[in-house]
Computed example of a mutant assay.
Amino acid sequence: MRKLIIAALLLLSPTVLLANAEGPALQSSNIDLHDQASLQRGAKYFVNYCLGCHSLQYMRYNRLAKDLGIDEVTLRENLLFGDAKPGALMENAMRADDQLKWFGVVVPDLTLVTRWRSPDWVYTYLKSFYVDSTRPYGVNNLMFPLVAMPHGLSNLQGVQEPVFDHHQAGATPVVVGVKLVKEGLLSPKEYDNMVRDITAFLTYAGEPIQLERQRLGVYVLLFLGFLFILAYLMKKEYWKDIH
Rank of each mutant, 00 (worst) to 15 (best):
A25E: 05
H151F: 14
Y130E: 00
R196Y: 00
Y45M: 02
E77V: 05
A21T: 13
S128V: 07
L11A: 11
F144P: 11
V122F: 08
V220K: 15
A8C: 06
G23W: 02
L51D: 08
H34M: 14
L68E: 00
P24V: 02
P108F: 02
F46M: 03
C50F: 04
W121C: 07
L9C: 08
W239Y: 07
V176C: 06
L112A: 12
P173M: 01
N193A: 14
V195T: 03
Y61R: 00
H151S: 14
A169G: 06
P208F: 03
L221P: 12
K3W: 13
V47Y: 03
D97N: 15
Y58Q: 07
G42L: 01
E212W: 13
D109S: 04
K127V: 06
W239I: 08
I242Q: 10
P119I: 08
E237K: 09
K3T: 15
D98R: 14
K236R: 14
D120Q: 06
P145N: 05
L12H: 04
F81L: 09
R60Y: 07
L18Y: 13
R63M: 08
K101Q: 15
L202Y: 03
V174C: 07
D83C: 01
K85I: 08
L80I: 07
N20W: 11
Y204D: 03
F81E: 08
L18M: 13
D165Q: 05
V47R: 01
E22H: 13
A205T: 04
R117P: 03
E91Y: 02
H54C: 00
T172W: 11
L64Q: 05
L211E: 08
V218A: 15
H167Y: 10
L180D: 03
L222M: 15
S55M: 02
F103Q: 10
G206F: 02
V147N: 14
D197R: 01
P24Y: 04
V139R: 04
Q99V: 14
F103K: 13
K3E: 15
